[in-house]
Nucleic acid binder design. Structure first.
Lengths: 251, 251
DNA sequence: TAAATCTATCCGGTAATATCGGACGGGGGA
DNA sequence: TCCCCCGTCCGATATTACCGGATAGATTTA
């Protein structure tokens, strides 16, 4: 075993930042409490992070700074799939009037990269960067369907198949069967599997022989049903996915 | 002098992350080079950051992960001024057809918090989280105009008055005079002071007796001129700023 | 196929520094 | 005015970050 990894102080630093982020505005005492450090040690970290500009003080309370937004956003801007998909997602939201989004996979979780809302879209409080278990969302399942089976198994091992509604898939066999179906018909669905009363449909973005992410349209279950669920939205998504794939390849 | 601050390893960790972010996809060797560390030390940090999920590996190259987007975005979502201003900014962009944005101040710099683009908006590659010297932008000057004079002087001391176009203000006396004008008429302008060929107009958002940020509309100098520059956009901005101020206060 | 070359990973001794109890000081409340 | 509390600072000590060098693995060359 390598004794030098992890660099403990590095991990401590990041944990400290996450603790402050989770508190979302806290006093010195509250932070000291949350990180379970002696006052003096917490003070050292707090001051260091203020100096480097990763945390900011405002009238006795401390929050994370906009440096995270800067790093995260500039990285996102550089991502080909984001550049290519963003305008298409916006179009989908406008045309359908519903929610539309882009998800990618990172370390076995689904990360929302962009969200567009149409005129009649539900008020869901989701945000870019937010993470979801892949098995609980339509884009997540579209991604899983195009990963090697052993990778999917590793992801299940690590993250399990958590139930977030009564419809969520929790049995690996059921999941693998569904992934097969998704590959066959080319798109995935989520029928109230993540949020009660919400249905979504997703299509995978495949480029350079690899799954790059998935695009989604979703809305209230009573609107996303029948013809709309089985024909209209899938065909829009597949058409759009194709456009995005071409954009990625030739850019 | 306090010997315990900064926690050097914490600083090193953050520097490492920034180096990787700046490279935007680099091999282990390139990173080792950029951070000027022995291979073995760089390896320790790299592995630690991979384990914690702040960096990700993709086929031999390393980039920052979407954790920064997650932290940054969730923090932004929690900001009152963002919540209040965002829909108004969108409206401004749509109504004017131009660029519209929200800026706040952090550690003496202007940070863009949201950007909306109208139909005819210029293709400027700006992004949320991006930082600008306050003196070089219309919203930055609107913010400076409502900070205490000693604070403005401290900011000038720290960041200077860098010239980015031939029109940028570089003389403190000229700046202070302009800030006076801004306070009198209630809004600020940027006439090709940051980007050649681009004019912008900004109004401050003041709440709880403090400057909270500034909203902006901008576009090509030939369109943002005359009546539009001096009447139309300023009055839209002032009206919108007022709406935002009310939103912040009662939410 | 083997050798050579390069790259990434691992190990362990040592110097550097993170840690934290306790002491200090300043601002707000009684 | 005094007291109390909260944040800051100090310094001795144990911890651990550091890094040269050795090893394993991948990739190219002979």
């Amino acid at each position: 075993m390598n004794e030098s990894v992890p660099v403990k102080t590095a991990k401590t630093t990041l944990d400290f930042v996450e603790a402050v982020a989770a508190l979302d505005g806290a006093t010195f005492a509250e932070i000291t409490d949350a990180v379970e450090m002696p006052k003096s040690t917490a003070h050292d970290y707090l001051q260091t992070l203020l100096q480097t500009g990763y945390l900011v003080e405002d009238d006795g309370t401390y929050t994370i700074s906009t440096k995270f937004l800067e790093l995260g956003e500039s990285h996102r801007q550089g991502m080909k799939i984001y550049q290519s998909a963003r305008p298409e997602i916006e179009k989908l939201a406008e045309e359908t009037g519903e929610h539309s989004s882009l998800m990618i996979e990172e370390n076995g979780l689904g990360v929302l990269m962009h969200i567009a809302t149409g005129e009649n879209a539900l008020q869901l409080d989701v945000y870019a960067g937010q993470r979801f278990p892949l098995s609980t969302t339509a884009p997540g399942k579209a991604i899983l369907a195009h990963l090697p089976r052993e990778r999917v198994e590793a992801i299940i091992d690590e993250h399990g198949l958590p139930a977030v509604t009564t419809n969520t898939i929790t049995d690996p066999d059921v999941l693998f069967e569904e992934l097969e179906t998704i590959r066959e018909r080319g798109y995935s669905t989520d029928l109230e599997e993540r949020v009660d009363g919400v249905n979504t449909v997703s299509a995978p973005i495949i480029s350079q022989g690899r799954i790059q992410g998935a695009i989604t349209v979703g809305g209230p279950a009573h609107r996303i049903t029948g013809e709309v669920l089985e024909e209209e939205i899938p065909s829009m998504l597949l058409r759009t996915a194709n456009v995005i794939q071409v954009n990625i390849t030739y850019s």
